[in-house]
Design a protein around this nucleic acid. Sequence first.
DNA 1: CTACAATCGGAGTCCGTGCTCCGTATGAGA
DNA 2: TCTCATACGGAGCACGGACTCCGATTGTAG
Lengths: 197, 197
Amino acid sequence: MTSPASGRPPRADALRNRAKVLAAAEEVFAVQGTSASTEEVARKAGVGIGTVFRHFPTKESLLEAVLVALLERLAAEARELRSAADPGAAFFGFFSRVVSRAAAKQAVTEALAEAGVDARRATGAAGPGLRAALGALLERAQEAGAVRRDIGAGQVMALLAGLSYAAGRAGAREDVLRIAFDGLRPHACRDQAAARR
Amino acid sequence: MTSPASGRPPRADALRNRAKVLAAAEEVFAVQGTSASTEEVARKAGVGIGTVFRHFPTKESLLEAVLVALLERLAAEARELRSAADPGAAFFGFFSRVVSRAAAKQAVTEALAEAGVDARRATGAAGPGLRAALGALLERAQEAGAVRRDIGAGQVMALLAGLSYAAGRAGAREDVLRIAFDGLRPHACRDQAAARR
DNA sequence: CTACAATCGGAGTCCGTGCTCCGTATGAGA
DNA sequence: TCTCATACGGAGCACGGACTCCGATTGTAG
């Protein structure tokens, strides 16, 4: 798709414009939500509408490209934390950072929602990628006794999507995260002995 | 608004149609989300589009009426639970019921989101009404030692909105609720002595 | 039963938006 | 520099959805 075996390599300005469009789309969708018009994206990118539609034949394909980019960036961040010194801090820190970013960017919330269920549609392989990276983070945190053991990556993804949504609207981000984190930790009395050793 | 001092009382069929439109709108928005077309609502109600727009001069006003009705119904349910025998069960049961309903009805989630922040716009007095009723439930549960004391109605509303969103997408409702509930309870070790007496 | 004002119905208007088309501009190989 | 396939720009088309208007209908007071 990006470099088919058919024709010659794409022209330099074509590549430049594609990048400009993608960046503009990311910003526009982040601020106005995914219902922003394609024309708005073109204006922000400083190109004509025709150019946008040549690179992304459909609005949906443009949206998909943006969401995939966002998810892949999150997955990359998660992967970097795999070897962190404190697995618990890594897990909770990542969680918190994602929610904060979602509060600022409408599109992140929608990307998470898509990734959560619609593994079939859009977001293609990016959803599972994030899920896997998050799963690794989760497992290490569980082994370190920082997170309860009776949950999986799916539950965490769902929680992530939900709290991102809540954080974007209400201003109670800190408190809501605190509650969720307490719920994610092992039960103090029941499990603390097991966690300690 | 419902009975202005201006003209005579409204005709019987007008009242009937208004109710039919409201009911149809609630169902349509619940299934298709709030972006469903007004024509769809009219069809479902078995009336013409003109009739819809006479009763609700704007699509937004129709939407607002639906959301207010949903919120008021929730608030009424919460109020009925004020004198329940087990305050903890009443609180968590209500919470769980709301999230389940939101999973089935798109519109409920959006109503909660609106009520959470946009107290200014739409939903007018219904948002604060729910907040108050939920606050009463929360306080009783806290006094009974079933819920931690360092949170307020605002935090619970935010959590409610977020989990409703998550439940509507992912199928992990049960698990996510379990985590949230554990986070809402007092810390077992730190607080259980205080809660017991 | 009659008369009339309130109400209904839905064709038609207006506008925003996704997407196409083609004349013009431009990068890159010879 | 010359050539031309590639890429650009944006006017225009098609479509759907919110909202209007007015002739037909119907509840209701007298």
